[in-house]
Design a binder for these strands. Structure first.
Lengths: 113, 113
DNA sequence: ATTTTGTATGAGCATATACTCATATACTTG
DNA sequence: CAAGTATATGAGTATATGCTCATACAAAAT
């Protein structure tokens, strides 16, 4: 995106859609709960504190976006992170926010702004 | 986010908000237009093909999120990318999408799925 | 076959936000 | 000061999407 030719409208929509999928706290919580490996829906409901219906919908959204993968075993369905760039994306954003917050704290402490 | 302790609800909101800011095609177009350096609003309106009002709003959103920085010079206002992680984020997502698309193309070509 | 357990989904509501039009504000120039 | 130019914003509308309740579906157990 930097030195490459500008993206087409279609590509921009895809990139935006990608970011949109990550733009929900509950979905981030699910991703976080899956960093250590796959879990079934019931476990994810417990880990996140959401309702079963809502978690199921978010899992569908994440799976449709190829962020998560699905494996069915009997009654249970196990989800896992299937896109290796997801952890990197989250780390980048977290790091950036930490910096931004400490900068802000420093400014407040110095009475600036 | 991976080996670190799980994020607080507040932190999750911030991360989600960050992704949300990047989840609009027009804002991505603006970011793209700023990869080569700062530009004023009129230039950005021309580069993106949007209306002045809409571009102004998106610039405000991006600036409030500390993605862009603002510099006023006389009548004009110049915007620039102020968060160095933005290009990396976009590259990560683009790369991931390219892979995903070529995989899909390969599957279609092989008659799989 | 019926019941139980785990997961998905249809329908409806509430909220957020992208967009536009018109107008306001800020600065410059005549 | 008046007029012009660059940017921002209030108000209104349309659309998307997150959430919930109830129920459907699928597989297992009795």
């Amino acid at each position: 995106m930097s030195k490459h030719s500008p993206l087409t409208d279609e590509a921009l929509e895809l990139v935006a859609r990608r970011f949109a999928v990550l733009a929900e706290p509950m979905r981030l919580r699910l991703i976080q709960a899956l960093f250590d490996g796959e879990r079934n829906v019931t476990e994810l409901v417990e880990a996140t504190g959401g309702t079963q219906a809502n978690i199921s919908r978010h899992l569908q959204t994440l799976t449709a976006a190829h962020v998560l993968g699905r494996r069915k075993d009997g009654l249970q369905v196990f989800y896992r992170i299937s896109d290796p760039t997801i952890p990197k994306l989250c780390e980048l954003v977290c790091g950036s926010l930490e910096k931004s917050l400490t900068r802000q704290a420093a400014h407040l402490g110095a009475g600036e702004q």
